[in-house]
Amino acid sequence: MNKVDDNHDPHLAHHFDTPVQQYSSAKIGMWVFLATEILMFGGLFCAYAVYRGTHPDVFLYAHHFLDTNLGAINTVVLLASSLTMAWGVRAAQLGQKPILVIMLLLTLLGGVGFMGIKTIEYSSKYSHGLWFGSDNAFYVKSGKYTNPEELTGAIEYGESHAMPHEDKGELTDEHLELQVKDAATEDVLDNQAAGEAQDQSLPASAQSNIGNATNAPAGLSSKFAEVEGDGSAYVTSEKKPLTYEDLDPQQQKLVSQFFQIYFLMTGLHGIHVLVGMALIFWLFIRALRGTFGPKYFVPVDLVGLYWHIVDLIWIFLFPLLYLIH
């Protein structure tokens, strides 16, 4: 054994033949882990896709509450920290200790900057009653708002403060398509209603359509008896941002879901940023001690991969949450 150990690379585990084999194994192990990370976020992206697909106007309306500028700045901060991380890996491979230490520090600062901006965003949401769960002003339980006193302030915050930064909340083809479909179903119901106008067995929803049919394409709203002539939610010629009143009552009750999804996705992502920052701090301490060099840089490389996947997930989160059109 001694003879072997004399020749043995101190960083080479005994069950590997060569450092290259050890390096490749470590890397593919990390990649499999990263694949599971993508699958975990995939569940949240699926929830996002289903809710946005079924309630496009809710997402179009609620995304105005997010600050696009802060989101864009955070994207740049995260991209820059990815650059410094990749540079750090390169420095470790080349044995450039001072550069590695500086790059790890800069990457860490990028993480601090990202979480700092995220904190500004979160606290702004919190102070306007737009927190997650039942603390959201839009949260509806058993048909009632759980904290109605905050609702007006929250709506004002979203519509007066956030919207001027945005372009007009124009209707997209998706919405028009939805309306056309709906108008078609509406027509069917209307025909029935016209034919059997006196039929009391008709559901109240169908009856209310009669009054609103002239406002078509009225969208989903007119099927609710409670709307009472407020059915002209989306007049296609109008090109102003959606307001809360524009949403039909069913959709109004679903606005909080955007915030639940927003907080879950950005929250899980933020936890990953924190974990990445802790790992980078660990690397930073070890790099100061001179642990890493051309013969041993696997930890830097693997933490780098983790940091990049966090960046990569944000690359998808940013347009999907902040840039809804």
């Binding site: 599971t36 993508i38 699958l39 995939g42 992206f45 699926c46 896709a49």
Partner: peptide, 18 residues
Amino acid sequence: LALVVAFVFVGVFIGFAL
């Protein structure tokens, strides 16, 4: 391959659910 397969399955998952 690990990355691409993960994305493909997320795509299948979201596509069918949607």
